[in-house]
Amino acid sequence: MTASTTAPGRYADVNGVHLYVETHGSGRPLVLLHGGLASGEMFAPLLPAFTADHQVVLVDLQGHGRTADVDRPLDARLMADDVAALVDHLGLGPVDVVGYSMGGKVALDVAIRHPGTVRRLVAASVPVRRDASYPEILAQQEQVGAAAAEFMKGTPMYELYQRVAPRPEDFPRLLDKIGAALAQDFDVTEEVRGLTVPTLIMAADADMAPPGHFVEVFGLLGGGRRDGGWTGEGRPEGGHALAILPGLTHYDLASSPLFAATALAFLDRD
């Protein structure tokens, strides 16, 4: 079964993946990366803010939205390689990358694995260790798999997949792959400590991990060690920053105007 689409984007073949890509606006290029079980469409309410001064590239990552799955694990590192290859394919040069949740992990891996691809990075709702997430969140993640597909019917994630996916019947397979990815232990503390790309660590004040974890990540980047000074001379040397957005959760962070305003304030700093 193949779903028909009337979306305004196009496809780019990179690393064996037929990636769906949309480009909006003009200006300095900015790649927006969506969360798990979502697609680039999730940023539609904020797109006018992002496209005011930027050329925005929306990517549907492997197995998500209008990009069909391929025969490999759903691994953020592999998807990061896809994004870097796409930037090269499009001839965009160093780009700003903004990612949320799963897309934030992919964005972080782009900066770690392909630093020359990224001008500035915004990583939103991205713990750098698996055990940083609340225990109840880890317990919920253990339930993600094909068996949950029936229970997800009627949810926005299921509706989106059925509406736009090239193979809507692959939804249980996607859940299995996401479940397998979530079960993998990870700790990229040292990789983050070595980041050379100016990075904004962003989170909601009621996210999947406590605010203190994101403060800890900021500390890995040299933040929070001293007073910033009258002219900012005490800020982290790499140009890194931290934002804990008030009154938000993991689930509404990336649809809040605060998300766009905070990301753009960091990206447009120079």
Rank of each mutant, 00 (worst) to 15 (best):
P211A: 14
D60E: 08
Q140W: 12
L78C: 00
H213I: 02
K105T: 15
A183Q: 12
L258G: 04
Y158E: 12
A7P: 03
S125Q: 11
V14C: 11
A204V: 06
G91A: 12
F186M: 07
G103L: 13
F186V: 08
G25T: 14
L195M: 02
G36N: 07
D185I: 03
V144L: 09
R10D: 14
P8Q: 08
S133F: 14
R173F: 03
P246R: 02
F50A: 10
P166M: 06
D69E: 14
G65H: 04
L245I: 06
Y20D: 10
P115E: 11
K153R: 15
G154V: 04
A181R: 11
A260H: 11
D60H: 09
P8A: 14
G238L: 01
L58S: 09
Y100E: 03
G36W: 01
V215C: 00
G223I: 00
D268Y: 05
G229S: 10
V122A: 08
A260N: 09
G247K: 04
V192R: 01
R120C: 12
A12Y: 08
M79G: 05
G232C: 04
A132L: 11
R226N: 01
G36V: 12
G194V: 04
A3I: 14
G179H: 10
P8T: 08
A123R: 08
V106Y: 07
L78E: 12
L30C: 09
R269K: 12
T199Y: 01
G27W: 07
G234Q: 00
R113N: 11
F43V: 11
E233H: 01
L92W: 01
G228F: 04
L138A: 15
G229K: 09
Y20S: 09
M208W: 13
P166C: 06
L220E: 05
E190Y: 04
P29S: 13
G234M: 00
H250Q: 13
L61T: 13
P48G: 06
L264W: 05
A165T: 04
H114K: 07
G25S: 12
Q162S: 04
R163D: 14
T67K: 01
G35E: 14
A52Q: 10
L248Y: 10
L58G: 07
D96G: 07
A84D: 09
F266K: 12
A254M: 05
L174N: 08
G25R: 09
G212I: 07
Q162E: 14
P246Q: 07
S256G: 07
T249M: 02
H54L: 09
P246L: 07
L47A: 05
G63M: 04
E169I: 03
F218Y: 15
P94Q: 11
L92D: 06
L248I: 12
G194D: 08
M152D: 09
